[in-house]
């Protein structure tokens, strides 16, 4: 492809802007990593730096000592993320498609039914009572899947809007004339055409399941059922509690070997590490989804 002069200048310009944006986005995370491998005392005495004077791996040693628990939690997190994301995509698209059809009787009601849940919530306690007393999800895998994460009004509305704007009505009409059922249309037209948004939503909801620790906080209290985020968040909180409330102990030195600042950084880094590894692979699907929608460029 031959680019015009103006087009070339434009490409150079946007790439410079985007490289700066990328640096702004990535450098703090690099700093996070550097802090996590800095010697604790150097961190406190010399301050934060991209180029620490002295390295230390105590933070990772601390996590390594808990590796049994950490690895088991990774396994559970992966299961939860995969099942959760699959369910989310199916449920979201199944309701978004009918809602995107302008001639569906009762459409305003259903739209409102979905949207209203974004504004009002009964609060934590009533939901907690229902999930624990009626559905008995406490300390089961459902504790991570069912409350809140499975379906969000936000995603439904985004997908619905995308279907409405990006799938031409003419396609539907043609299909109807061919005698296709609604389900065939959903399967053969809506899902393929909606791939960009489905991939986006899948990514977000996957991240949602991966990063969620609130469900674990409320509904899980046995350590063998902790996901990575729940475990790491508890570790961070526990270390902080140890650092903030050492009083009253009788001096067994639980604190002496716990690095605080660097360990927080290390834990945070361990939590996002799998995403950093998997991300490029996801990115491939993501980009192909976009390429499918946009032939231009």
């Amino acid at each position: 492809m031959v680019l015009s002069k103006g087009e070339k200048a434009y490409q150079v310009g946007i790439n410079i802007v985007l490289i700066i944006v990328t640096l702004v986005m990535i450098l703090p995370i690099v700093l996070l990593f550097m802090c996590s491998i800095t010697d604790e005392n150097t961190l406190i005495n010399n301050g934060y730096s991209f180029f620490p004077e002295k390295f230390g791996l105590t933070a990772y040693q601390y996590i390594w000592q808990n590796r049994g628990t950490v690895l088991r939690s990774y396994g559970l997190t992966i299961v939860v993320t995969v099942i959760g994301t699959a369910c989310t995509l199916i449920l979201t698209s199944l309701i978004a498609y009918p809602l995107s059809l302008r001639n569906l009787p009762g459409r305003p009601f259903f739209n409102f039914y979905v949207f209203f849940t974004m504004l009002f919530s009964g609060g934590l306690v009533p939901a907690y009572i229902m999930w624990t007393n009626t559905f008995h999800i406490k300390n089961t895998i459902f504790a991570y899947l069912l409350p809140n994460l499975l379906l969000s009004a936000y995603n439904i509305i985004l997908v619905r809007t995308f279907f409405m704007t990006s799938i031409p009505d003419a396609l539907y009409e043609a299909a109807r004339i061919d005698g296709a059922s609604y389900f065939t249309i959903y399967w053969k037209i809506v899902l393929p055409m909606g791939k960009p948004i489905m991939v986006t939503i899948g990514l977000f909801s996957g991240l949602g399941f991966w990063n969620d620790w609130t469900n674990g906080l409320y509904y899980v209290n046995r350590s063998e059922m902790f996901t990575t985020q729940v475990l790491l968040n508890r570790m961070i909180q526990d270390i902080q509690a140890l650092a903030n409330n050492p009083g009253g102990g009788s001096g067994s030195g639980a604190l002496v070997n716990l690095p605080t600042v660097s360990i927080r950084m290390a834990i945070a880094f361990v939590a996002i590490l799998p995403i950093l590894v998997v991300y490029p692979f996801l990115q491939k699907y993501f980009a192909s989804g976009i390429a499918l929608g946009a032939v231009k460029g």
Partner: peptide, 9 residues
């Protein structure tokens, strides 16, 4: 998930 707990308002 959303409507039943709203009774708690």
């Amino acid at each position: 998930n959303n409507y039943i707990p709203m009774a708690g308002i």
